[in-house]
Design a protein around this nucleic acid. Sequence first.
RNA 1: GGUCCCAUAGCUCAGCAGGAUAGAGCGCAGGAUUCCUAAUCCUGAGGCCGAUGGUUCGAAUCCAUCUGGGAUCACCA
Length: 585
Amino acid sequence: MNLFADFDQRIKNALETLDIIKEKRSEVDFGRLTVEPPRDQSHGDVATNAAMVLAKPLGTNPRALADLISAALRDDPDVSEVSVAGPGFINIRLSTGYWQRLLAVMIAEGTDYGRSKIGAGLKANVEYVSANPTGPMHVGHCRGAVVGDALANLMGFAGYDITKEYYINDAGGQIDVLARSVFLRYREALGENIGEIPAGLYPGDYLVPVGKALADEYGPRLHNMPEEDWMPIVKDQAVAAMMVMIREDLNALNVHHDVFFSERTLHADGAKLIRAAINDLTFKGHVYKGKLPPPKGQLPEDWEDRDQTLFRSTEVGDDIDRPLIKSDGSYTYFAADVAYFKEKYDRGFDEMIYVLGADHGGYVKRLEAVARAVSDGKAKLTVLLCQLVKLYRDGEPVKMSKRSGDFVTLREVVDEVGSDSVRFMMLYRKNSEPLDFDFAKVTEQSKDNPVFYVQYAHARCMSVFRQAKDAFPDLDVDSLDFASTVGQITDSNELQLVAKLAEYPRLIESAALSQEPHRVVFYLYDLASSFHAHWNKGKEQPELRFVNDKNRELSIARLGLVRAVACVLRSGLAIAGTAAPEEMR
RNA sequence: GGUCCCAUAGCUCAGCAGGAUAGAGCGCAGGAUUCCUAAUCCUGAGGCCGAUGGUUCGAAUCCAUCUGGGAUCACCA
């Protein structure tokens, strides 16, 4: 039930009854007509630009047309007042009865209230995290993980058919490095003194148990093999071990993917899938052999001018053509990416979403080029870039250096502040905006901490129900007939709270369409704020309190309101992937 | 040099799919409150929406150029 969709229809129906419209029906288009909440609540509950948009094609002026439309709208029994303002806005005020019935619907729909079909079952693939399986996840992965996960939840709620996917970069040079690093740890486990870890290998202690496991399983056998023989064995074990670790980290952050897709799948069988993808592009005329111009600005010292197999991505929107095959004959990472996109497209996805860090901004155009070339422009590809996160501890920036291995892991952050706080704060900013994350602030138990503030609102709702049980011991709160009591909701503050809840379905749709999960979190904060404000009024005016042991029916009606608030909070918190606690301790 | 992102109150940021008098939190100023519906509350001041053009009935929002800040820029993944 979406109030604005409801009135969108009602206004269109009203328009159809007007003679001026009937006469020129074929010439007028309702496409630009909007129905939305007015900026200022004092204007009304629903506003439409209908008169301003339609005046011109109808050959009249907006104010005159607005008067005609208003007259038609006044016939609607749910409309209590219609006014024309400014250049021709039509402001509609709804009857109390309408709000009350709307509340009853919200309660009945529960946590499904706000669910939308706007995605129309479109198959969308959200790829996010995709951290290299060479070590534990570090804090830099946090934001993309949370944004991707919440976006997928949001789009799922808005009616898309969503697959959450993780691309395992388990091919290429870095995995060789990983395997060599593990092999060293294996030798160490066999009793050898390996000394300092040489530069160029991964020094982290997390590889020690992997080496030990190999020693336990194979004894000295690997040690006696040539590298080409032990390499595949060690690679498999190492990648598997890293992925176990990464999945544990993701679980700790409440991130759960549907599909883990291995890059090695693309390289299997003599790189069958990559070759197929390149052949496909070649067939479509997107591949040629040629030279790439050297990069503008400073020329790299080791620049080689040579023929390469190139993807003519400039013809599909890229700035420069991209190599598919390296000088040693192996495939570039980009070639695998082409194959991966094709694989997803062949799996039937209409839209691929990539959640990447801002440092991958330069990659966007070539991915879009891939989408155009592979799908002939039929598949949609969008990239969400997350700006960097800066960590602060008590106002001081936390220094990190990759080289020394001195980085903060995702796990450390989650263990210290909790996944709810991490997730909420990662969403409490537009993804295109850099983010400061202060350890002290996000764990603070006060209204200054938005995580706490929103969760506390939900806990308060639950607390109302506990109080209701004390006041009315015989009350079965799980089977109350709210619908017959909503007529008791007449206080203007209560009705405003209902109006706030009425914004939720529209918010879900616009957030999903614009792929901006942060909007949900901001809305939650707003809703929590309205709820807390109303609660506080109960201090000064006890008659406004939700539970009134002298008036059972009124209390039930208000419990209905509280339930509706709690459901929306729970629904939004679920999209964010954070808990809706029963109480705060 | 190319490309992408950003610029809104003193600070940190929202601003929904162009709409009316641009919002919140912190901070600041004033006031209330010791209550138990806990981890305060209410009110107020504060703005050239980076600049200039354009589209539009109407622009913080869309387009172009410029200024300032960040990211990135063959053969890595």
